[in-house]
Design a protein around this nucleic acid. Structure first.
Lengths: 146, 146
DNA sequence: GCCGCTTGCATAGCAAGCTATATTGATTGT
DNA sequence: ACAATCAATATAGCTTGCTATGCAAGCGGC
């Protein structure tokens, strides 16, 4: 059996992920945001004062990656780290006013990208797609030992 | 409308792509390969003597990314760059014996990853998934101006 | 009370992706 | 034939992801 790049799921998914990232980047760059910051912002718009470890769990990103992303967000004036009075090891991540103000335009941009991607697909097809992607995620998470 | 990270296609696809990359990496690392090299190898196992620009078109990667990947592959003894006698600007990319010998085990590893990901899905579901991902790819390619 | 484990975060170092720009060789129009 | 343009590659500099490792703060048992 030949392994054709063009119909390997791994290749297709990688390609698609890069297209998503580029499409999002184009639309949030005007707000001074970048794609990797987006899931972090989503979590913090929902609830502030999370720790780095909590953000890792929510966003499903390894801790050093999160540390670096948070550094860039701090540098860019999106978050502040406030030392946790109850635990000297942690700090609690809070949004700046600027980051709070970006919730509306930034989520609108993200919705636009999603809409663009699924243009032409029925509600049923979208649901099926979500389900099938979910199956692959679960399969690969199990494979990697959770 | 709230934007939920967990059912945004952009987020899911990004997450899935990272899982694919990690699963592949785990399996090809013993051969001294890394995931980014894989599509390049697939193209070269099929036909050697491609130029960098041709590889970019086939693999759908920007030229500077390809240049760096080829540098690492040359460093790792997977390819040689031979100057094109007909055009002083290009070089033709050839595999080393080592890279040729890796075709069997490496493609087997990639097939295993794909099989793992789609475990539990019927042939029809797989075909539908391929089709739906293809739609998103086309949609986003059009969006990004080809 | 303190010794050792666990937990939270930081740092180092690398791969792979991107945009923007420079460089050098080929081609083309006059 | 040579200037201008185009094409192929290289380089710089950034983000986002990873693993491996270090370090300091908290906690549990004795």
């Amino acid at each position: 059996m030949v392994l054709r790049r063009t119909d390997s799921f791994g290749y297709m998914v990688n390609h698609l992920a890069r297209l998503f990232a580029r499409a999002l980047e184009r639309r949030i760059q005007p707000y001074g945001l970048s794609p990797g910051q987006f899931p972090v912002l989503l979590a913090l718009w929902e609830r502030e004062g999370l720790t780095q470890a909590e953000l890792c769990r929510i966003v499903q990103i390894e801790q050093p990656t999160m540390a670096n992303t948070l550094n860039r967000m701090e540098r860019d004036g999106l978050i502040r780290r406030e030392p946790d009075p109850n635990d000297g090891r942690r700090s609690l991540i809070h949004l700046t006013a600027r980051a709070r103000d970006l919730e509306e335009p930034a989520t609108a941009a993200a919705r636009t990208v999603n809409q663009t991607a699924i243009k032409g697909l029925s509600e049923e097809e979208q649901a099926e797609l979500r389900r099938l992607i979910g199956v692959m995620i679960v399969n690969l998470e199990r494979d990697s030992g959770l």
